[in-house]
Write a protein that binds this DNA or RNA. Sequence first.
DNA 1: ATGGCCAAACTGCTATCGCAGTTTAGCAGT
DNA 2: ACTGCTAAACTGCGATAGCAGTTTGGCCAT
Lengths: 224, 224
Amino acid sequence: MTTMKLPPLLQDDPPTLADRAYLSLREAIVEGTLAPGMKLSERGLAAMLGVSPQPVREALRRLEGEGMAESRPRSGTYVAELSIDRLLEMGRIRSALEGVAAGIAARRRTPIDIAALRARLIAVQSASASGDERRLAAVNASLHETLHAITGNALLIRSLQAVNAYYHISTRVILTSKYEVSASLAEHSAIVAAVIDGDPETAEALMRAHTGRSVDVAAIELAR
Amino acid sequence: MTTMKLPPLLQDDPPTLADRAYLSLREAIVEGTLAPGMKLSERGLAAMLGVSPQPVREALRRLEGEGMAESRPRSGTYVAELSIDRLLEMGRIRSALEGVAAGIAARRRTPIDIAALRARLIAVQSASASGDERRLAAVNASLHETLHAITGNALLIRSLQAVNAYYHISTRVILTSKYEVSASLAEHSAIVAAVIDGDPETAEALMRAHTGRSVDVAAIELAR
DNA sequence: ATGGCCAAACTGCTATCGCAGTTTAGCAGT
DNA sequence: ACTGCTAAACTGCGATAGCAGTTTGGCCAT
């Protein structure tokens, strides 16, 4: 057998119970079903989800690591309280990480990645024209996630997922005004162009400005 | 009883077995005892550490979340392989996060924080003059950690700890040349001054430049 | 000597149980 | 009616056991 390099045989990843519990709880927190300050009992949640406390415990620790839950040593785990300040901080962290991700993506993108980015961008354009806000939000997220995936950096991807979840808790519907839609589309186009061109500095600067602007918009909304 | 606001009664946090396992394993990975690619068996490590597999499992998932370990679905967990590219990516992430942290610290610092920062800076100056590299590295880390703590942002602190651990794997001794020592000291002084002045933009830019330069130095070292 | 197969050992994952510490509800005393 | 104590219920944490799937070492046939 020659020592040749092969791709790692990507196999479908049957999600574990802990993974599913994590996703379920995170969604509940983001959606507001589990309100901030509410207690997250291992046994109680386990009973609701129909699993044993063990996977729930793992999910809680993960949420805690992502800042969406807080644990008092021997008392319990609670849904993290969120303040406007904290939310804006998360927005800044998100902005910095998205910028770095765009820069790395501009360095590493392959022809396949470029094709994927073009496809996502077309989908964003289509959704922008349609006026369907939910679809637009979905394809926008998909575009960002495509950029994340191109970095191939597990820690970066994970951090971005965490901060995005947290950040989106109370910024669900920012993309409403026509101005926002057209501005966002133009920015996305420019970012993708810079990544395709392999220009890390420009890609990072544009992405940072793009996401930073959304923080400002959120701040204005929240201050009202 | 009136509804008055009280600080949360900080009590000593007896570290859990999972915490200790995590610290132990992380140190072993950073130090190289657990080499990249090596298998991390829950039961095996549990026997070595004298605990049950359960806390070890939790520690492994945490390491995995921080990018220091990788897990193949039903095969095992392994120490993450590290490449120069990946290390530089981590350096960029670190730089971005440290910058954000410095900016947030400049917004939130209290008089007590300012006193703490001044004390740390004096310690750094003292250690720089002494020529004791280990002590200098320790007080430098302490200065950075003080800034992290001032942000009060759990997710940010956690992310920084993770990326710092990863980043320091093969950059243990950068601070050797006299030039590095004096340049680093000057930069630290300027950063602390900006934070104390409450100037977020300057603090972030200086911190980003400071940490970004250390990435470049590391890259030069590694390329030799 | 080489290729294929199979069983034993090992893997991560989940369930169940027990422990020490915390919270809480209710009772007793004023 | 209010305070102070106590016991029962609940909490997270850890240990142990069992399951299904994976890996591995060795045996047999070629």
